[in-house]
Every structure is written in structure tokens, then in C-alpha cells.
Amino acid sequence: MKFNNAEDIVQLTPLWQGERFPDGRPKVPSDVIARLGRITLEEAWGPLWSRGYHYQFEGDFRIIHPNKVMVGRAVTAVMVPKRPDLHETLMNYGHEQEGRRGFFNQWVIDSLGEEDVVVVDMFDKIYQGTYVGGNLSTAISTRTKTGGAVIWGGIRDNQQIAEIENINIYYRGSDPTAIADVTMVGMNVPARIGRAICLPGDVVLGTPAGVIFIPAHLAELTAVNAEKSQVRDVFGFARLNGNVYTTAQIDGAWTTAMWQDFQAWFENDEAAEPYRHLTWEQELEEARRNENDGPSGGVRL
């Protein structure tokens, strides 16, 4: 086996059609990363859930900066309890065949680039399961600039880590012990984080409610759907405040007349300016089709 093998990563992520990093990870564009950082958890969750991605969210974490949003591309690692023969084999392979230095967690952090997020299945180990402390968190800060870590396990040096403002860390618990008696069996492989699954290159969105892993091939679609939901809400609030429409009209299927009203507002109101990269032809056509076919009674959730 090889750690961080590009051929394996490409095989795992065939639906991604864009640029990739040298290690094979999907390279979701930075502008899409930034857009996803401005959406809510529920806005990200909806497009994934409706497409059958039901195991992308995990909320049972402690958070270093509870009110700070974290977003970036996943670099994954899977750890298991130490078995001496396996441990020695993999450690020797990494050192001798791949030229790696230090312990397994250092291998992963040494590979990070800007906008990366470490995602680690530490099998919920906290005592001697502290994947990062002050030093490695500083290294994450230096390498990722705006990223962080999601650790299904422990950390140490919480007071030092809390002083690092540009990243965030989601973790299960704290302990003063150093990492020990664990072996990494995969780097940039599928990782289970609680009840969620993360693949290398997924966009990791960390919010006050927890973490959602957005598949790379759905990242831009998720951003678009979320932004459309946001700007429709801005319009809806404005029209409700003006007593133009009822809540039933705003929450229901919009008529062609409502869509035309929205488009006029969208093209001219200052509040819509950040969203003007979006287009609405499909929605307007659907409204016309529904009016021709009769009311559907659908409600926008």
C-alpha cells in the first residue's frame, strides 16, 4: 500500500471533472470555497440530502472557536489501534520508501497547502489520542492560512490552540497525554467521522452546529443553490415587510408574476448585488410550466 496515492484518489473521485492537485485530490476553485464559507449549514445540507447524500453531517464536536466558520478542502487520515507488526511495517515503509519523517500525524500535516482542512478518523480516542497540540496546530495555521482540522479523537494544549485565530479545530475531547499506540492505515482515503463520510478533496464546512462534508463534484451546485435560497429570502423578507405578499405566497411555488417582480428587484436593488452572478431562467420557465399545467401546491422548504 501507498500513502496519499494519486491513482487511488482519482479512482475514488471519478465524478470530479475539474483541476486536481498533484496528489490527485479534486481542486475545488478558491472562489467556490469562499462562496461556501458564506452559506449556512442547512443551505449546504439541502442540496446534498435531496441527491441521496445522507451521511455528510456530524455535529457531536467540541469547537475551539465556536462562532467561527471554517471552510477548506479535505486532507484525510485514518488511524487504528496499534498492532506492533502492522505499525512497524507501515512506519518503516513511510520512512524508507516515501522519505517521510516523524510520526504519522506529522506526515499528514507536512502535506498541507493553503485552504486545506485535516480530517482524521482517530476512532474516538482521546487518552493518548491527541492528534494535534500547540506545535502542530501552529503548523496547520502556517500551511493552510484559513483551514483547520476535524478530529474524531482528541487534542492537547487547548489554551495555546485557542490563541490561533486564523484556523478552527473540531474535536471530541482533550487530554494532556501525547499521541501514542496508534497507526495510520490510510492517507487521503475515505474517512468515517462519526456518522459521516469524507473523501479527499471534499469541501469541509465547519459551522457552530457541526461539520458537513460537501463532495467536490457538488460543491459549485451547492453554492449556487444556497445563494439562490439566500437571495430569495432577502427578497421575501422585503416583500413581507411591505405587505406585498403573504407568507403562504412567499413559501409556496412562486407565480410568473412573482418571479417577474423578483427579477426586477434582483436587477436593481442594492441588496441583490452580491448575487448577480446567478441566473433564473430555469425557475421562471418552471413557473410558466406550472401555471400552464395547473397548481402543484409545492412548498419551498
Rank of each mutant, 00 (worst) to 15 (best):
E286P: 01
N243E: 08
R289M: 15
D202G: 00
P84S: 09
Y170K: 02
S50Y: 08
G294Q: 07
T279E: 14
F61Y: 11
I9E: 03
W16L: 12
Q159N: 10
N241I: 15
N188R: 11
N225S: 12
Q230C: 11
H54Q: 09
P84F: 15
L12Y: 13
E7N: 13
V231N: 03
I33K: 01
I126D: 00
N105K: 03
M79T: 04
W107E: 03
N158T: 12
V182W: 06
I9C: 03
N241L: 15
D124T: 02
W45R: 07
D8M: 10
P29T: 15
A77I: 01
K2I: 14
A253E: 15
N268V: 11
K228W: 13
L12Q: 11
R25W: 07
P215N: 05
Y127D: 11
S50R: 14
V28Y: 01
E98G: 08
R73Q: 08
V211P: 04
D181Y: 15
T207C: 05
D116R: 04
E98M: 04
F21Y: 09
P215L: 10
R300M: 14
I155W: 02
R100N: 02
P47H: 06
C198D: 10
I214D: 02
D60W: 07
H217N: 06
C198T: 09
E267M: 15
Q282V: 14
T255R: 14
Q282S: 14
I212P: 00
L112G: 00
F235V: 14
L12K: 00
F123V: 08
Y170R: 04
